[in-house]
């Protein structure tokens, strides 16, 4: 099996984030008793190294957004741990998360207009995180201008007093990136940061993001449903299905030679601009992802999988390491 070399280990790196058997189950209440759980994230383990970009790819309902929110501390966790620099943030009191953890993570959201309070100027928006962490006025002022220059909104004087509705989607997303980076975080979560922007703008914003990521050695978790941008932007790709991690590995490898049947199907159905596309019928998976309240026994893809075996319907496969940091959760790779 072909596997390319693992990505070069950057000097002085170690695991920044270690997620271990994470489960996030939302209780379903009827009156005052709990009748079941929605298993939004059901046993996910992976690591993110310093300065690494990991893309989390999956369709809606696969749990990627919930996972991301748990990592930045917005959502409580049912079981498992999330270790950031060795500290389990799921056990931290809210106060510590607010004071310490929030300085280490940043968030860039999908909707540039929704992510900005409409009644605040760009200056105020960028100053807020600094004010929350009690940074003095001169330092704040300097940082605002610095960040605006970093994200390409120059001259900064032209932008500080503008309100969000006066800026375009692309410009606002740059402000969002500036805001996410202004506290000097080590980890940034980008949740579909360019999917609401025009196609010709996406590469511009992603290149900027990539530039800053390399400059500051940021680790990025990039959530998307778009494999193509994931390939361009990330080092590794992680595929999620029905709340579980089904494949993770080097970005180019996962796309060139997907191992998990679901990854394979996903890669197959995404088109590139090609005039021959209209003559072919794509091989897809019929059906729907399983119910997260009562997932089927065994592998969750079994009802739809073209390679399904009897064992898949009974027993849930573990995650197999197939070499070179590639993990696949599928019985087909048992003997590796």
């Amino acid at each position: 099996m072909e596997v390319s070399n693992p990505p070069p280990v950057k000097p002085g790196t170690s695991d920044l984030l270690v997620v271990n058997e994470l489960r996030i189950w939302y209780p379903i209440r009827k009156l005052l008793s709990i009748v079941g759980y929605v298993r939004a994230v059901d046993g996910v383990s992976f690591t993110v190294r310093r300065g690494e970009v990991v893309a989390v790819v999956g369709e809606s309902g696969c749990g990627k957004t919930t996972l991301a929110k748990a990592i930045i501390g917005l959502v409580p966790v049912t079981k498992g741990s999330i270790l950031f620099e060795g500290v389990d943030i799921t056990k931290l009191p809210k106060r510590v998360i607010r004071n310490w953890y929030s300085r280490n993570v940043g968030l860039v959201q999908q909707d540039p207009y929704g992510a900005m309070p409409p009644f605040m100027t760009v200056r105020s928006i960028l100053e807020e995180p600094l004010k929350v962490h009690r940074v003095e006025k001169e330092v704040r002022n300097r940082k605002v201008y610095e960040m605006l220059t970093e994200v390409g909104l120059t001259p900064p004087e032209d932008y500080v007093n503008k309100y969000p509705h006066m800026l375009s989607g692309g410009q606002l997303q740059r402000v969002a990136i500036a805001r996410a980076l202004i506290l000097g975080p080590k980890l940034v979560l980008a949740d579909e940061p360019v999917s609401m922007l025009d196609a010709s703008l996406r590469i511009e914003i992603l290149s900027l993001f990539k530039e800053l990521q390399e400059k500051y050695g940021l680790a990025v978790i990039y959530i998307t449903h778009d494999f193509a941008t994931a390939k361009y932007f990330s080092d590794r790709i992680m595929v999620m299905y029905a709340g579980q991690l089904v494949e993770i590995g080097n970005a180019k490898d996962v796309i060139k030679k997907p191992l998990h049947p679901y990854t394979e199907a996903l890669v197959n159905v995404i088109p590139d601009p090609d005039p021959n596309n209209r003559f072919i019928t794509r091989k897809t998976l019929v059906g729907e992802p399983p119910n997260l309240i009562r997932p089927p026994p065994g592998c969750r893809l079994a009802p739809r999988c073209p390679y399904v075996m009897n064992r898949c319907k009974i027993e849930e496969p573990p995650t197999f390491n197939v070499g070179g940091l590639r993990l696949v959760k599928c019985w087909m790779y048992e003997k590796q």
Partner: peptide, 22 residues
């Protein structure tokens, strides 16, 4: 041309460029 150059491709590795301005 600009539009097609700005779209990331899944199956090939072409260099990308965005269109400046709006």
């Amino acid at each position: 041309k600009g539009l097609l150059n700005s779209i990331p491709r899944l199956r090939t590795d072409t260099s990308l460029a965005s269109i400046p301005g709006s």
